[in-house]
Design a protein around this nucleic acid. Structure first.
Lengths: 207, 207
DNA sequence: GAGCGCTTGTGAATTGATTCACAAGATATA
DNA sequence: TATATCTTGTGAATCAATTCACAAGCGCTC
């Protein structure tokens, strides 16, 4: 398949959210222009994004809401359940573990780990924090798909190396670190400090 | 000033982090190539990024670590303290309020708000959760610079409208919503569901 | 102070993403 | 069946970001 830009995938994800909203409101068709308005983009952009994967609309009419939603779920790989482990049960990790919003879209948190004996064993809304020493054993046994990394900066690369060696192919990184991984592993980093600095820059260099 | 791309600002922020690391390790000069390796980019990219703001290096030698760090802090607007309020003290909001990592870079959390009377008054590591009804009054009095939005999706736009009307010019949005704001307001959105779906896409369409 | 090795700063070239613009298909109406 | 009205899908054009490539500057050595 031709390479798909990250920005395109993010927009597809946004379109799906809007479609689900339209679906609950009982609408059956929608035009690229309406989708664009909701997503803060243009109708040409919407059509181009979709054109990478096929042609799902009807000329003169628009797109069938349920059909397009289904296609997007398929494209994004949301037709199945993904097993997610959280590594690091500090403030961020614990908040994510307790956040039940992920379940909706098929992301199931199957385990939470920490290295601190004070934290291991704690109950987070029904999930017991496991000892990070068992990471490799558990990964070999349970085959989780995605690891959410919520450990301190200094530990981030070492933990990532362990996850990769154990076979993890996707990491959502909350540590403020640039992780090195082999090419078959995908990393997405959420860096709150960087976002705040982006706001600081915008406020300072008011254009 | 010429328009600076978002991706450039994010890289500047990353360079600064590396420089601070080099600084604590006692290094005094660094080349664009070393900076690039650390940041997973190229030396030409590093030099181009910096060239938008001036020429800070010495040919044949590289950059002075403390000088470049200082320049980047200046460019990013980190020479001052920024007052940050957190709106929404649910799981994510509370975790952010307790997270002390922001303070380091000059972002001070001055208040936390929630609309739920059950939550108003709770103590979050020394910060009492205030009644969201007082948002406007407090903003007029305290002039915070940045609002972190951690409210449920359905409330996100309405709360944003209130913040904008009260004079907030920068919002860090954790709600999975596409916020509409006037052009003088900057919004950065952190959308964990979108990141997970990006990973789902990558795992599904293994290239 | 001439020569060498190194690294910056930057136009030019390239690659990538977005926007334009319009032919073609679909529906509706008469 | 003909006409009018929509809206898609997509090459071509434009705009933006990255990479290339090299002249010019700096420090070091002889």
């Amino acid at each position: 398949m031709k390479h798909i830009a990250d920005s395109t995938v993010r927009r597809l994800s946004a379109y799906l959210r809007f479609l689900e909203d339209f679906e609950t409101r009982g609408l059956t068709t929608i035009s690229s222009d309406e989708l664009a308005k909701r997503g803060g983009t243009t109708s040409a952009q919407v059509r181009k994004d979709l054109s990478f994967f096929g042609s799902f609309g009807k000329r003169g009419l628009g797109y069938s809401v349920p059909e397009l939603a289904g296609r997007l779920r398929e494209i994004l790989g949301l037709g199945r359940e993904w097993k997610v482990i959280i590594v690091g049960a500090g403030k961020i990790g614990a908040a994510l573990a307790r956040h039940h919003g992920f379940q909706q879209r098929g992301f199931t948190i199957t385990a939470v780990y920490d290295a601190d004996p004070q934290i291991v064993g704690l109950d987070l809304d029904g999930l017991a924090v496991r000892d990070a020493g068992h990471l490799e054993r558990d990964i070999h046994r349970d085959h989780p798909d995605i690891a959410v990394l919520a450990v301190p900066e200094q530990a981030a690369q070492a933990v990532t190396d362990r996850l990769v060696r154990a076979g993890i192919k996707a990491v959502l990184n909350f540590a403020p670190a640039q992780l090195q991984v082999p090419p078959e592993v995908t990393v997405k980093t959420v860096n709150m400090a960087m976002e705040l600095e982006g706001l600081s820059f915008a406020l300072t260099n008011r254009e």
